[in-house]
Design a protein around this nucleic acid. Sequence first.
DNA 1: CAGCTTATTGCGAATCGGTCGCAATTACCG
DNA 2: CGGTAATTGCGACCGATTCGCAATAAGCTG
Lengths: 151, 151
Amino acid sequence: MDLESELRVHDLRVTTPRRLVWQVLSESADHLTAQSIFEKVNAVDAAVNRSSVYRTLSLFAEIGLARESKLGEDEASRWEPAHADDEIHLVCESCDSVLHHSGDVVRSLRSHLGDHHDFEARAVEIVVRGRCATCGPAPASESTSEPSPAS
Amino acid sequence: MDLESELRVHDLRVTTPRRLVWQVLSESADHLTAQSIFEKVNAVDAAVNRSSVYRTLSLFAEIGLARESKLGEDEASRWEPAHADDEIHLVCESCDSVLHHSGDVVRSLRSHLGDHHDFEARAVEIVVRGRCATCGPAPASESTSEPSPAS
DNA sequence: CAGCTTATTGCGAATCGGTCGCAATTACCG
DNA sequence: CGGTAATTGCGACCGATTCGCAATAAGCTG
C-alpha cells in the first residue's frame, strides 16, 4: 500500500512524522502501542513529537490505513496496519501473543443480528482471551503462569 | 442475589461503600461508568470516597458479582451486575442504548477455536456497534437523525 | 527558485480515568 | 467491651491521550 498516494487522495500532506509512523507500523508484525511507535519513530528522527504520533495514528485510522484495538483488559490501545474487517483477535494470556483469526463468525453474526433482531451491525469487535496452541492446550490445574513456571 | 452472604463466602467485610455500590449497580438497568456510580453513591452517603468505589467495583468483578466492559471506542469502562458469560453487547450508535444478546455465537466460537485452532478461549468479548431496531433499519443515506435518543 | 497560504508540527500544559501509600476507621471475632 | 486486621478516606500520583497556540514547512503558483 502506498502511503503517499493514499494521503494525496485525501488532500493530506506527506510529512516526516507520517512517513515514519507508517514505516514503523507497516514494518512491524506486532500490535504496537502508540508509545512504542513513538519510541521507534523517535529513534530515527528525534525531532518528531509524541503528539504528532498520536495525531498521525488517529488520522491513519480515519482514512483506513490503520486499526486501533484495545486488546488488554486495561492496557493502552494497540495499533496495526488496517486489515479486513472480519478479523478477530486471539490474545494468549500466557505468552501475550496476539493472533488474528478470520472466519465467518463475524459475517454470520452480522446476518443473524440483521435477520432476527433488526440490528444493523456496522463494526464488530471480538477479542478472545485464552491460551494459544503453543502454550499448551490446558492450563495446569493450579499455577496460572508462563509456559515454564518455576513450579 | 444476596450481597452479604456473597461477601461472607469470600471472607470479605460488609461495609457501607460495598452496600451502596451494590445497591446502585443492581438497581440500575444501565451500563454505568465508575464515575456515575460514584456520584449516585455519593449522593446517598457523601462520606464514601471515589477510590472506594473503584476498589469495590474491581472487587465485585473478582468475586463475580459485577462485570466490566469497554463499550465505547474511547470512553471509560462500564459496569453492570454480572451476567452469564455468553452475552454480547449491541451498542446503538444512534441512540446510545446498549442491548444484550445471548445466542450461541460465543459458544460456537469457543468450540470452533478449540477444535480447529487449539486455542482455549477463556473470556470472549464481543461488542457490536450499529443501529438498533428502534432507530430504523437503515441509516438514511445522508441525514443522520436521531429518532429518540434516550435512556 | 521565491513567495504565499495554510496544514501540520512541536511544545508544554491540561485532562481524565484510574491507582497508590498511608494513617485513621471500623467490621467482626472472641 | 476490647483487639486486630481489613477497609476506608484522603490526596498525591500516574500513564495515556488531548489541546491550544505559535513556529514550521508542504505544496501550490508564478
